[in-house]
Design a protein around this nucleic acid. Sequence first.
DNA 1: CCTGCGATATTCT
DNA 2: GAATATCGCAGGC
Length: 191
Amino acid sequence: MRLTEAFYRRDARVVGRELIGHMLVTFIDGVRTSGIITETEAYLGEGDAASHSYRGPTGRNRPMFLAGGVAYVYFIYGMYYCFNVVTGSEGVGEAVLIRGLAPVDGIDAIRRRRCARRPNLAPKRDTELTNGPGKLTIALGITPEHNGADLITNTEVWIEQGTAVSDDAVEITPRIGITKSVEHPWRWVRR
DNA sequence: CCTGCGATATTCT
DNA sequence: GAATATCGCAGGC
């Protein structure tokens, strides 16, 4: 069962925490791949200098300003894509970055996509296939075509209800890889 | 296990 | 022209 519109239309910090334990799913070329969400970060629409939306709408960040429940896929470091879930109300500009998964369905396809990337990529343990934001988009076949996709109705990418994860199983830390607004504890990781 | 570094191109200043 | 919400490899332990 997919998560509902009401789930997404809340503060990114609430959605980011609650996404831990739910399942990111793609269905591409007849192949289902999925993983339990194990790591997320919230990026706010106001007063968050690390957020792409900090200086208002631009060509790149436009999906962040849609109503919660759509995908925001952006290109980073000249080589990778990151997948975010837009949250909150239209015009706010906040989202949750999915930073890690535990692979569930289609592990063969996941492995194939990851190895296709580099000719001689060393064999990977399952846990290394999707434990990073750039890795999991490759693994699940997420591309810029999914930017702005409606997660309630899209036939290739969505999020399904998983199992709730208790607070004592979720570590809270500052966000990774940023240089501004580094102090906020808006990263959640399943232990 | 850990640390350091190069690859790579879009985006915004 | 600078910065970037990353990754994989090499080398040292």
